[in-house]
Structure formats: C-alpha cells, structure tokens
Amino acid sequence: MNDMRIIQRTAGMNDIKIHAKGVDVFYGDNHAIKDVSVDIEDKTVTAFIGPSGCGKSTFLRCLNRMNDTIDICRVTGDIRLDDEDIYDKAVDPVQLRAKVGMVFQKPNPFPKSIYDNVAYGPRIHGLARNKADLDEIVEKSLRRGAIWDEVKDRLDAPGTGLSGGQQQRLCIARAVATAPEVLLMDEPCSALDPIATAQVEELIDELRQNYSVVIVTHSMQQAARVSQKTAFFHLGDLVEYGETGKIFTNPDDSRTESYITGRIG
C-alpha cells in the first residue's frame, strides 16, 4: 500500500525555500558534513535519512543556526532562505529561528503550564494583540499539534506532567504557534506510539499546505509515507537527493539501495 502511494506521488513544481550550497560543518577537527548542497522546496516535506552519526541532525541544525550554540562547531558554505544568506553578519539568529522553527528529538516542554508552553513563542514575538488573540493562537496550535482534545480541560497543568508522546505533540504545537515558514523536525516520532505517530504524520501532511517541512527520521516507512523529497546522508556526505518515490524504488547510488534494503545501518 505504501508503494502505491509513493509511485503516485510526484512533487509539484514549487519555489525553492532553502538553498544550501557547499556546506561544510566541523566539530573541532571532526568534519561532520562534507560539501553538502541541497535545495529544499516550499510547501514540501523533505526527509533526511541515513545511518546513525551520518550528520542528519547536524545539517538540520545548520538551517536555523542552532549550531551557533555549540562552541566548537564551525559552519562554512552558503545557506539561503528566500535568497537571503542566513549566515550573513547582519542576520540575527533570533529572527531566523522565528521563521525556521524546530522540534527536537527528545520532547523538551518548558516546566510551565501547557498554555504557557504554547503561548511563550507568540508572546515574545508579539503575535497576539490581546488575551483573546493569544487564547485563539494557543487553541489553534494545540489543535494542529493533535493534542487539543487531550489537554483542553487542563491548560493550567504543567507540560512536563504529560506523557512522552503528548509532550512531543505539545512541542510541535509550540513550534507551530510562532507561525514559522519552515519547520525542522529531528526524529519527532521516536518517542511516540503508532497512533500518535499517525496523528503527527497527518499533521505534517497538513502543514505542507503552508510550510516547508524538513524531517529527520530513522523509519523508512515514515519517510516514504510523509515526504515528497528524500535526502540520503552517509558519513557526512549527501549521497543522493531526489523525489521520495524514486529514492525508494529506483535509487541511483548503490549505498542508498543498501541502506533502504537494510544492508547498511
């Protein structure tokens, strides 16, 4: 059934949202990303796959400059968001991250109420004019995070008191609340059960209407289900990048094929 969907799927012609060219990342002497060039399209879900330690998270974190927070990390190359160099001196990473939201591998809600978790982003970015506005944003975001029904009666309860899967969906709601243009998700479903995973995947599919979504995943099925484009990383190299259907059915590189069929891992 998956295969059917994959073959049917052809990515439409979309604008390029993020344009990365010749990106190298070093952790001290460790060359973690080697000359990677990728064009990430708008209104598209792009999946990053590859064996553990190949640099998927590292590359993802380059896209919203989260690597800036790691002292030993050095990024070179050219990454453009809507044709603006995000590593330009004049760019404030804070503004960039408001546009390029991120969901982390491990759920990390703030130890505050569920409401405040979601409301924090809109508050600091001044997205709501009044309390009613904010309430609306919170509700809308929690609905998009597929968690509204579970928490609507206890918005004042601490976000850390939720189950792991609920926490992750809360984090997604929190990321969506700031109305980003790009959403980066680093293995968002690794802590979720199949039902919550299905909900999140549905959410990702829905987000695609307005956003560009980049998702790192270890699940081939998930990549195949949700993404239109797939990038395969191996030991810091971008081995292959193309339409998901093609990568999963007819990859160009033998390494991609071995990985997908479970021979490298």
Partner: peptide, 18 residues
C-alpha cells in the same frame, strides 16, 4: 538545568537572554 530547555527556548526564537 538541562540544555534541552535552552534549546527549546532558542528553537522558538527566544534570544539568549530571554
């Protein structure tokens, strides 16, 4: 304080000071 809290805040566009 776990670094994930800082990442969470930075990830939604809080400044370092925030």
């Amino acid at each position: 304080v776990p670094p994930s809290i800082r990442e969470a805040a930075l990830g939604i566009g809080a400044s370092k000071m925030q």
